[in-house]
């Protein structure tokens, strides 16, 4: 069984049906990129995967365990799924080190010493060991996002979800975050990434999922989607987005 299995996911907000039957799988070590127009339900999909948002219908399995079952301990599941937000969401009142350490100490109940060592290793991994004592407001957007990736990594996640991790960044800061993500993919991390960075999608993704209006329109390896998509709408969207965002990575 794949590491992550999503089956027929539905979610509505009031009258609006945001997810209308989304199904896909993610193998261990795989990176999939989700693209699609604004308001299509990409963020909702990611939030349903760790049940920050409760799906209305459909089932999700992580590592063979059904996340959507009432009997699962959702806190245990969330601790195994990293989440990287568009606007970082670092804890404002904590230093970079404490941001990375908090989950280790409070959720994993790791002794403080050990948690500190682990957190420092993760900060070093994203190139920010020297910023351990800085508060989020003292870091650039790119640095904040790298700390938030370190925070996710420290929990030893089976999978990391990225929701437009570079969309809030100034163009000159995007590269440093993408670089960290590329290294993660190469190191074998399983990742599901919502992004408009077509260069990243092309070079790193094993598969691209194109979503529109709450359904998956098409999915496949980047070479196929970029050169020979089955659905005309996919080609049109890819052309537009590449024009708009370029391939600067």
């Amino acid at each position: 069984m794949a590491l992550l299995v999503v089956e027929d996911l539905h979610k509505r907000y009031g009258k609006e049906e945001v997810l209308r039957g989304v199904s896909f799988t993610l193998e261990r070590g795989e990176t999939k990129v989700i693209i699609g127009p604004s308001g299509t339900g990409k963020s909702t999909l990611l939030r349903c995967i760790n049940r920050l948002t409760e799906p209305d219908r459909g089932r999700i399995w992580l590592n063979g365990e059904e996340i959507t079952s009432r009997r699962t301990n959702i806190y245990k599941i969330r601790a195994q799924i990293g989440f990287v937000f568009q606007d970082f969401n670092l804890f404002t009142h904590l230093t970079a080190l404490d941001n990375v350490r908090l989950g280790l100490i409070r959720v994993k109940r790791m002794p403080r010493r050990e948690a500190t060592e682990r957190a420092m290793r993760e900060l070093a991994r994203v190139g920010l060991a020297d910023k351990a004592n800085a508060y989020p407001a003292q870091l650039s957007g790119g640095q904040q996002q790298r700390v938030s990736i370190a925070r996710a990594l420290a929990m030893d996640p089976k999978l990391i979800l990225f929701d437009e991790p570079t969309s809030a960044l100034d163009p000159e800061l995007i590269g440093e975050v993408l670089q960290v993500m590329i290294e993660l993919a190469e190191a074998g991390m399983t990742m599901l990434v919502v992004t408009h960075e077509m260069g990243f999608a092309r070079s790193v993704a094993d598969e691209i999922i194109f979503m529109e209006k709450g359904v998956i329109v098409e999915q496949g390896p980047p070479e196929v989607l970029f050169t020979n998509p089955k659905v005309p709408r996919t080609a049109e969207f890819l052309r537009k987005i590449t024009e708009f965002y370029g391939e600067s990575s």
Partner: peptide, 26 residues
């Protein structure tokens, strides 16, 4: 900010832990 709660929950913290360690200190 609401994102602070989302981030805490996404780490596997309970609602109580989130209130205690993230929301109240801020």
């Amino acid at each position: 900010k609401r994102g602070q709660t989302m981030a805490a929950l996404s780490l596997g913290m309970t609602r109580g832990q989130t209130i205690q360690h993230v929301i109240v200190p801020q």
